[in-house]
């Protein structure tokens, strides 16, 4: 397990030191959300109605943007080969990297969402629900994303392909994230049910996705 924490710490340190990746993701998030009123017109009522969906979808796209980097650098400098032969199972190594991705990208994006919500005239009382669902759902985004990143490691046009492969996998997360916010806005108690399902999806992704990612990586090592 010490290997797991060491790898997590290394990835987080790298993410902090580079910083530009997170900056790019946050900047992308801001730009996409800002484009929307420009495309739809500044109708505040409309914007506040569609704000949760817009914030969620833009978050998915911003997270998607940072996925190809998950294994790329380690593949290029050969440390991925070392991880494949290290005593720490590759599944756990992948989990550490995905967890690092969640902490360094998923959480900052989720925390930025309420600020962007202000720009879209999102009902301020929905902010806890918005951030809560995003924090509950983004682990699934990082872990399912690791599968896509592993599968497209050696592919041509990797980034575009990654989007095609991974976005359908995000549909359950998106649907339950949005429905939880919807329930919160109506003041119904469906919120807890949706949130629980969302958490269940995240837990299942955390448990199962590293198996697929590690299998995909192993196939490309030999």
């Amino acid at each position: 397990m010490t290997g797991f924490w060491a790898l997590l710490k290394r990835d987080l340190t790298l993410a902090v030191r580079e910083g530009s990746a997170l900056g790019t993701a946050l900047g992308f998030y801001l730009v996409v959300v800002a484009m929307l009123p420009l495309g739809l017109g500044p109708d505040l009522k409309l914007l506040s109605r569609i704000a949760p969906g817009v914030l969620w979808i833009a978050l998915l796209l911003a997270a998607l943007l940072s996925l190809p980097r998950m294994f790329e650098a380690d593949h290029e400098d050969g440390s991925l080969e070392v991880m494949a032969t290290a005593p720490l199972p590759l599944e756990l190594a992948v989990a550490a990297k995905a967890l690092a991705h969640w902490i360094s990208t998923g959480i900052p994006l989720a925390l930025m969402a309420p600020v962007l919500g202000l720009m879209l005239n999102l009902d301020i009382t929905l902010t806890p629900a918005l951030v809560g669902t995003m924090l509950a759902g983004t682990p699934a985004i990082s872990f399912l994303g690791s599968v896509g990143a592993a599968l497209t490691l050696k592919a041509r046009r990797g980034g575009l392909l990654l989007a095609l492969l991974v976005l359908p996998l995000y549909i359950p997360t998106l649907i339950f994230g949005i429905s939880a916010i919807g329930f919160a806005s109506l003041g119904q108690d469906g919120l807890s049910a949706s949130l629980l399902i969302l958490l269940a999806i995240s837990v299942a992704s955390v448990a199962a996705a590293p198996l697929a990612s590690a299998a995909a990586l192993r196939l490309q090592m030999s």
């Binding site: 599968l151 497209t152 592919a155 041509r156 046009r157 392909l161 492969l165 995909a216 196939l219």
Partner: peptide, 19 residues
């Protein structure tokens, strides 16, 4: 798309199977 984006056909088959 995944299958067509990999040069190595054996690898492409296995990765597509994982997907």
């Amino acid at each position: 798309a995944l299958r067509s984006s990999l040069e190595d056909e054996a690898l492409a088959g296995k990765l597509t199977a994982v997907l």
